[in-house]
Amino acid sequence: MKSDKPATREQLGRTEWIAGAIETLADEGMAGMRVEALAKRLGVTKGSFYWHFKDRQDLFTAVLHTWKEGRIRDIDKQSSASEGQQGNQLMLIIDVYSTNRNRKGISIELAVRDWARRDAQAHAVVEEVDTYRLECTRKLFVACGFTDQEAKSRSLLLYAYVFGQSLMAYDRYDPKIIDFKRWIAEHIVSSR
């Protein structure tokens, strides 16, 4: 039975707009982050947008800030290790990145990085996150006894591997792919 009451629209706050923009960025790239398109996708009016944001650039800044804060939180969580467990934590980082095939997360990461290719503000945020990421693993490698220079090289190798393999479709490459990935991880982390 149909109700005579008109459907009420849900109120969206700034946080919901940002979350919707990030989802749209992942699905459609920057082209989908037009105010009118976002409002339609979220089922609200453009007026709702301007209640929460000064302009489109204000939304872009908020999206980048939210992405950066989320990445830094994850990096801190993934790179925290108790004394003597730094090598195990490095292996865990590789394992988390190389086994978690979170397509939405990968889509967001790729969309932000694509945005950073064309926009100075996005580029600066991505560079800040990557530098933070590399520095956290560098510290773990140093705690494992590597020189600072080797720790920097291994940090770069670690992330080149985990991001590179996350973009590949290799499931049918060989039935022993798990063994290959473990071998690679051990070579990145091992002292010799």
Rank of each mutant, 00 (worst) to 15 (best):
F53H: 04
K181S: 08
V35M: 02
D27E: 13
E36M: 11
D76E: 15
S48Y: 08
G13A: 08
A160S: 15
R118V: 02
D27F: 04
W115A: 03
D76Y: 10
K77H: 14
R103A: 13
Y97D: 05
V126F: 01
L12Q: 06
E23K: 03
G13C: 10
I178E: 14
M33F: 02
I184G: 04
E69C: 03
R9I: 04
L42S: 06
W67F: 15
N88Y: 07
A26Y: 01
E83L: 12
S82W: 09
D27S: 07
A120Q: 14
T131V: 08
A39I: 12
A81L: 13
Y97S: 07
A31E: 09
D179N: 15
K54L: 05
T45C: 01
A37D: 06
V44I: 07
E186K: 14
F53V: 05
Y170E: 11
G32N: 02
S153H: 10
E36N: 09
Q89I: 05
E16H: 04
A160H: 11
T99W: 12
A151Q: 09
L157G: 01
I93G: 06
V189L: 03
R41K: 15
D4P: 14
I177N: 13
T147M: 08
T99G: 08
H52A: 05
E150I: 15
F163V: 02
H65I: 01
R117P: 00
Q78Y: 14
R71H: 07
H187E: 10
R34V: 11
G47M: 10
K152R: 12
T45N: 11
S191V: 08
A81D: 13
E10K: 03
E16F: 01
I94T: 11
T24R: 04
I108T: 13
F146Y: 15
R172I: 00
I94G: 05
H52V: 04
H52P: 03
D4H: 15
K2R: 13
V96Q: 09
A185H: 14
R34D: 08
Q57P: 00
K2D: 10
S166D: 02
Q78I: 13
W183A: 14
W115E: 03
K104L: 06
M30A: 10
D130C: 00
K139R: 14
V126M: 00
D171I: 00
